[in-house]
Amino acid sequence: MSAAIEVEGLVKNFGSTRALDGLGLRVEAGQVHGFLGPNGSGKSTTIRILLGLIRASGGSARLFGEDPWKNAVSLHRRLAYVPGDVNLWPNLTGGETIDMLGSLRGGLDPKRRKDLVERFELDLTKKASTYSKGNRQKVALVAALATDAELFIFDEPTSGLDPLKEEVFHECVREITGEGHTVLLSSHILGQVQDLATMFTIIRAGKTVETGTLEELRQIAASAGRDPESLSLEDLFLGIYSS
């Protein structure tokens, strides 16, 4: 099976700062892939390159085997994206925003939209300027999850969501993966990532540090002299960064 995302030796410079320094990432189709790293390590930058919003300075990034910068529009038909800080148009209501964003990708399934709105308990008639942070996030989540994309790219999608809505998000991700869709999930909530993802890539300072299943990561930790069985993703993450 070909990979949905293939990134090799990716480099990105912003002026004199090097945000990505030879990063690698491979996400197979149908996988939920956890993408982890401390603040400023380059997760969002990688995602923005994959979305064709910024251009790589070096290395290669492939989405479904194609160049995301050159073929942005055709690739975007196959993906949905939720950023971590959603900024909306203050005069539009949540409902209008969801429909507008959905129309860009050819319309939403009304049944699915209604179902998601109910589960996330979103008031669609409020103007975006009056939404709380979590509610803005929900608008973007409903707009993305109601589409029929092959690949979902989530960059800290639940920042600001309450625990109940986060649980709803978990259910939704399980549903879309059950239907065979691919998910790239970047998040600082390690419990969430451990819960949802089957593969993990951990990066630091623009470089990939570890990649593998939870088991494989545990083996690596074990070789460093730690007891593998009891380790959570959080322990592994902290272990990698304190070493």
Binding site: T93, E96, T125, K126, S129
Partner: peptide, 20 residues
């Protein structure tokens, strides 16, 4: 002045990039 609630769904004109 608090903004008033609006429609829960978009009118057709919003469903086109140019209309938006």
């Amino acid at each position: 002045i608090q903004p008033r609630p609006g429609p829960p769904a978009a009118s057709p004109s919003l469903l086109h990039p140019l209309g938006f």
